[in-house]
Simulated scan of single mutants.
Amino acid sequence: MAYIDFMSVVHKSTKRDYLARVNDPDFPKAKAAELAKKWAYDYWDGDRRINYGGYRYMEGRWEKVAKAMADHYGLKAGDKVLDVGCGKGYLMFDFTKVVPGIEVYGLDISEYAINDAKEEIKDRIIHGNATSLPYEDGEFDLVYSLNTLHNLHCFDLDKALREMNRVGKEKYLCVESYRNEKEKVNLLYWQVTCEAFNTPEEWDWWFKNCGYTGDHSFIYFE
């Protein structure tokens, strides 16, 4: 298991006003979180004060992440990859651009995201939960999950980590974390769906105790 950062290039491109997020008069934090956790229109394409504010495909945004992952794991035509918490499938689609002939599959809890997914890979996405992956042991050459597992309560986090480990030959995940009180406050102010608030050391404890042997990285709200 290694720490490998594929996500900072995307995460750090967004500017955040933490105080405005938590003090908004129309969508105060509790209201925004209630709407976001329905995983429907408001979460993906509603007001920016709730979450994404319009989650659209941007040429090149996820392609650099796909290329870095493909290069690191030596992915090639015919390999199978699974995106756990794939949303609208933009990273899945960009994998097909950087590795022609790769087989991409996705799973997400949001029916809205699946219905609005990238047309080219829409038929490869199923509705489901990270806690129960409907696949065979070792079925995928790479299973990855980006910014998803921190949205699970502890009793489901255990199941999801074990499921990722079971179905993937190689595994990679990225979750939110914090290293100090400032990052902890910023995370609490900014997030609308997070349930697992862990330091890097606590995440490492989860990985070890759930038998997760894949790679990982963290994003911080600095």
Score class of each variant (00 low, 15 high):
198 N>V: 03
209 N>R: 13
34 E>V: 06
200 P>L: 12
192 V>D: 02
46 G>T: 03
103 E>N: 12
156 D>A: 08
151 N>C: 15
23 N>E: 10
178 Y>W: 12
31 K>Y: 03
167 V>C: 12
40 A>P: 02
76 K>Q: 14
176 E>V: 10
71 D>G: 00
59 E>Y: 05
181 E>K: 12
31 K>F: 04
131 T>S: 15
129 N>V: 06
5 D>M: 08
90 Y>K: 08
19 L>Q: 08
48 R>P: 04
194 C>G: 07
150 H>Y: 09
140 F>D: 11
105 Y>H: 15
162 R>N: 13
131 T>E: 15
117 A>K: 01
155 F>S: 07
180 N>M: 10
155 F>I: 05
205 W>G: 10
64 K>A: 11
80 K>D: 05
157 L>H: 02
1 M>C: 00
20 A>Y: 09
214 G>F: 02
67 K>R: 14
5 D>R: 06
162 R>G: 13
18 Y>Q: 02
63 E>C: 03
11 H>Q: 09
85 G>N: 10
3 Y>R: 09
101 G>I: 11
39 W>Y: 15
5 D>Y: 06
159 K>Y: 07
81 V>S: 09
40 A>R: 01
5 D>T: 08
95 F>D: 01
211 G>E: 14
3 Y>P: 00
53 G>S: 08
127 H>I: 09
157 L>P: 00
206 W>G: 09
198 N>E: 14
62 W>R: 11
17 D>L: 03
199 T>A: 04
40 A>T: 00
46 G>C: 05
209 N>S: 11
212 Y>E: 04
101 G>Q: 12
133 L>C: 12
166 R>Y: 10
16 R>F: 06
61 R>W: 07
27 F>E: 00
100 P>Y: 10
190 W>L: 09
1 M>V: 05
180 N>Y: 08
15 K>L: 04
217 S>Y: 03
216 H>M: 08
5 D>A: 08
89 G>T: 11
16 R>D: 02
25 P>F: 05
173 L>T: 14
42 D>N: 02
167 V>D: 14
90 Y>E: 13
199 T>Q: 04
113 A>I: 04
196 A>K: 09
66 A>C: 07
209 N>K: 12
142 L>A: 05
140 F>T: 13
92 M>R: 01
217 S>N: 12
63 E>T: 10
7 M>W: 11
168 G>R: 06
6 F>D: 06
50 I>C: 00
153 H>K: 12
173 L>P: 02
90 Y>S: 05
65 V>T: 14
113 A>C: 05
180 N>I: 11
107 L>T: 00
162 R>Y: 12
117 A>E: 05
47 D>C: 04
73 Y>P: 07
185 V>R: 13
214 G>W: 01
170 E>F: 04
153 H>Y: 10
107 L>K: 01
